[in-house]
């Protein structure tokens, strides 16, 4: 098992190098230079060129790429073109915020979506199936931004249960969590339902019932354990999508996470900031998929046997 973990950790290196290469290449294709954005209009072209040279932006693509990778190995994420601050100091402040938002939304999605998915599958075609499924379809189709605005308007402005701007309390996290988590919960519910319906139709379920097992044992001990495997993969993928993709929620609820930093960096042609964000997102995503794979081993003895072999 440890060999597997080490192997996966080593695989992170080419993943991150590849992510840096791709994002650097895409950024190099975009029009405009950092100098034009930072200095604004009204300067001579020579002044823009000189500024870009000072930033290192005028260097050839591969020179910049290898310089960045060389510095990254030493733990240096570079300096923001726009803010002149260390990229790591910007990331350090925002990573915990993004992680917190993501974990809470994911927890909501899993704690609501998975049990509801089990319930709807077990009580298929009943009211306990129809109503949650209908609501799941609505939430799954609801844009995150629209849901966030609606929750803010109704619960913060009209009812006054929450504040619009963060005031440093736990309550600040509730609306962003709901906005981000509910659509994901809906997707989790539908996926879990589908996975459960497959599992409860398997032969071993019929066998368990024939042996006289209680229905609770059949469902929770046999069916759910097998149905959860693909669900865990979906939860892992959701984490990755949420971590870097929360920019809309961040803007709406004034949460300064990684997503808004990256979007701002793209707009400012701030290559070190964008590359730094991509490195962190790729790292987090890779670590999460690794954890998901390890979880598989613990849940599924067949997978565990493969690892141990």
């Amino acid at each position: 098992m440890w060999r597997y973990v080490v192997k996966r950790l080593l695989l992170l290196i080419p993943v991150i190098l590849g992510a840096i290469l791709i994002i650097s290449f895409v950024l190099s294709l975009s029009k405009g230079s950092p100098a034009e954005i930072i200095l604004g209009p009204g300067f001579q072209q020579e002044e823009y060129d000189e500024y870009n040279r000072e930033l290192g932006f005028s260097d050839p693509f591969f020179v910049r790429y290898f310089r960045y990778v060389g510095n990254l190995v030493k733990g240096d994420f570079g300096t923001s073109y726009y803010n002149k601050t260390s990229v790591w100091s910007e990331l350090k402040a925002r990573i915990p915020i993004s992680l917190r938002t993501t974990f809470m939304a994911l927890a909501l999605a899993a704690l609501v979506g998975v049990p509801l998915g089990v319930l709807t599958a077990v009580k298929q075609y009943s009211m306990f199936d129809t109503i949650p499924t209908a609501m799941a379809m609505i939430f799954a189709a609801t844009p995150v931004f629209w849901l966030g605005m609606l929750l803010m308007f109704f619960f913060a402005v009209k009812l006054g249960w929450f504040s619009v701007l963060p005031v440093g309390k736990f309550k600040d996290l509730i609306l962003p969590t709901l906005s981000l988590g509910l659509p994901h919960a809906a997707r989790q519910m539908r996926f879990t339902r589908s996975s459960m319906l497959e599992a409860i139709r398997e032969d071993y379920i019929r066998t368990a019932r024939a042996k006289g097992c209680k229905e609770r044992t059949v469902i929770w001990h046999h069916a759910v354990k097998n149905a959860l495997l693909p669900v865990i993969t979906v939860i892992g993928n959701s984490f990755g999508a949420m971590f870097g993709g929360t920019v809309i929620i961040e803007k709406l609820f004034v949460v300064n996470g990684i997503g808004s930093l990256m979007v701002k960096g793209i707009g400012n042609r701030d290559v070190p900031i964008v590359t730094g964000c991509v490195v962190i997102i790729a790292l987090v995503y890779s670590l999460v998929t690794m954890v998901v794979d390890i979880l598989y081993a613990y849940i599924d003895p067949r997978t565990k046997a493969r690892f141990i072999k």
């Binding site: 605005m149 803010m152 308007f153 913060a156 402005v157 006054g160 504040s163 619009v164 701007l165 005031v167 803007k251 709406l252 609820f253 004034v254």
Partner: peptide, 19 residues
């Protein structure tokens, strides 16, 4: 001075009494 880039959030914060 709050930095709020989203128009609707600033507007809602006024209605809410935070701005």
């Amino acid at each position: 001075i709050n930095i709020i880039t989203e128009n609707s959030t600033r507007y809602n914060a006024l209605l809410n009494g935070q701005l």
